[in-house]
């Protein structure tokens, strides 16, 4: 069996979600190869080659892949996939964008966001906002799968020494082009990979008050998250949304502040190891999943918490 993992990276470095995806690939058993498609992506390819359990790294370094445009990546992967039984990627923004396109071009169904590998053709995945876990079996000859990265412990980032092979296909589908991007710059750990996440909801009242969350997050070296209500109200940017239709996180510690605990929010954080809820409404559903609940006004709690950390 041979497995192709598509790397998540920004050309300069490999994203840790790739290491979780390699872990899922290793659970399938077989040779694991990584495809690094990018532009000026040698540094990311070197990191991929150092990852533990990787036999080979295929590097497609071409301007057409610089911005991970789905149309171009899919054209490339479909060619490379000819030699593989599985194509895997993390269920990240990029993975969700190009993987279904790859599956359709290969004329196979796709399996989204697996949380476990039961056997070579059987997987578990959450449906209905995580209220139900389905066990699904695929009879497709080639299996195209995205991996919920929080469900697989990452392989070690070092220790491997995979050979690197460059390929020089340039697949520009010619239907899309990159115009620009606005990426949040932050010194904080990445939300989906952080050990501690502190999230605020509508109870924060405005964007300025998120400074209170920031102060606590600084003390804990934590990432910051938010509920959809906080994002919709414009308190914080969209990339902070945790939930069914936002980011899935599973840190060691998740602190939910002024968040009621709607099922769509729980879907994104209820696999966290320890959950703390701070809410002034003792009946808020968030307390049903919290290990430690504090019924209090967040405007009293946050400064005090910061002081005690």
């Amino acid at each position: 069996m041979s497995i192709l993992v598509i790397a998540e990276h920004d050309n300069a470095s490999l994203k840790s979600s790739t290491l979780n995806t390699v872990a899922a690939a290793s659970a399938l058993g077989g040779d694991v190869h990584i495809l690094v498609a990018g532009s000026g992506c040698a540094a990311a390819a070197n990191e991929a080659a150092a990852a533990s359990g990787v036999a080979k790294v295929i590097v497609a370094d071409n301007a057409a892949y610089g911005n991970q445009l789905a149309e171009n990546i899919a054209g490339l992967v479909v060619e490379v996939a000819a030699d593989y039984d599985y194509v895997l990627a993390g269920a990240t923004g990029n993975g969700k964008n190009f993987m279904p396109r790859i599956a359709a071009l290969l004329d196979v169904q796709m399996i989204s966001e697996i949380i476990s590998v039961e056997s070579a053709d059987t997987f578990k995945r959450p449906i209905y906002a995580g209220n139900v876990i389905a066990t699904v079996q695929s009879t497709d000859a080639k299996k195209v799968i995205t991996v919920r990265t929080t469900a697989f412990d990452p392989v070690a980032a070092s220790g491997g020494s995979a050979e690197q092979v460059a390929i020089d296909t340039a697949s520009d589908a010619g239907v899309s082009s990159f115009v620009g991007e606005e990426l949040a710059v932050s010194d904080r750990p990445e939300l989906t990979a952080a050990g501690i996440v502190v999230s605020g909801g509508r109870g924060m009242q405005n964007g300025d008050n998120f400074k209170l969350i920031e102060a606590v997050a600084d003390k804990l070296n934590a990432a910051m998250g938010a509920s959809r209500a906080a994002v919709d109200a414009g308190f914080v940017p969209n990339d902070m949304q945790v939930g069914q239709t936002g980011k899935i996180v599973a840190p060691e510690l998740y602190i939910a502040v002024g968040i009621s605990g709607a099922i769509q929010h729980l879907a994104g954080m209820k696999d966290s190891k320890v959950i703390v809820a701070i809410n002034k409404d003792e009946d808020a559903p968030i307390f049903q999943v919290a290990d430690y609940g504090l019924v209090a006004d967040l405007f009293d709690v946050l400064p005090e918490l910061e002081a005690q950390l």
Partner: peptide
């Protein structure tokens, strides 16, 4: 488009 780090704009034919 809403991407992991923020927003990306693409032009499509």
């Amino acid at each position: 488009r809403e991407v992991d780090g923020g927003l990306q704009t693409v032009s499509l034919k």
